[in-house]
């Protein structure tokens, strides 16, 4: 008597071998764990580059020109006749300007620290100037 195979086959469970998948997944995990590096958040300060000196256009108001130049004791931010070493004071002074649509100009000496140049651009942006122009001054102010 021949028994049918169907009954026997019905109760068989199909089993997937997970071993190879787990192997691959672990490899991927180790790769990402070892290669991942968490970088600090970066943002941008947009500015316009100018080669020559300020060209503010026809206006009765004096444009905001910040010079980053050597002062009596190290490098300073020069705004008109005033020399400042604190970027927050510079921001306060710049905020008082009325002609913000005209933009601000940051003129930087070659020997000035870059952090001060960036801080001057930041001060102009924080004070509300629509555009900031970066002007290289060369070696001498």
């Amino acid at each position: 008597m021949k028994l049918s195979n169907r009954r026997l086959q019905r109760h068989r469970k199909i089993q997937l071998s997970m071993t190879s998948m787990i192997d691959v997944v672990f490899l991927l995990l180790i790769f990402f764990l070892t290669t991942a590096s968490f970088v600090p958040t970066e943002r941008d300060l947009e500015s316009t580059m100018r080669v020559q000196s300020t060209s503010a256009g026809a206006s009765d108001l004096q444009p905001a020109v910040v010079d980053v130049v050597p002062g009596r004791s190290g490098f300073v931010y020069r705004l008109g006749q005033r020399e400042l070493d604190d970027p927050e004071q510079l921001t306060d002074l710049l905020a008082r300007f009325d002609n913000k649509a005209q933009g601000a100009f940051v003129r930087v000496s070659d020997r000035a620290p870059f952090r001060m140049a960036a801080a001057a651009v930041q001060a102009c942006k924080t004070a509300g100037f629509a555009s900031v122009s970066y002007i290289p001054l060369g070696d001498e102010p």
């Binding site: 970066e42 580059m49 970066y134």
Partner: peptide, 12 residues
């Protein structure tokens, strides 16, 4: 070329 962006690091 006039469009320049200066990258800064946001203080934590």
């Amino acid at each position: 070329i006039s469009r320049l962006r200066i990258a800064v690091q946001v203080p934590t």
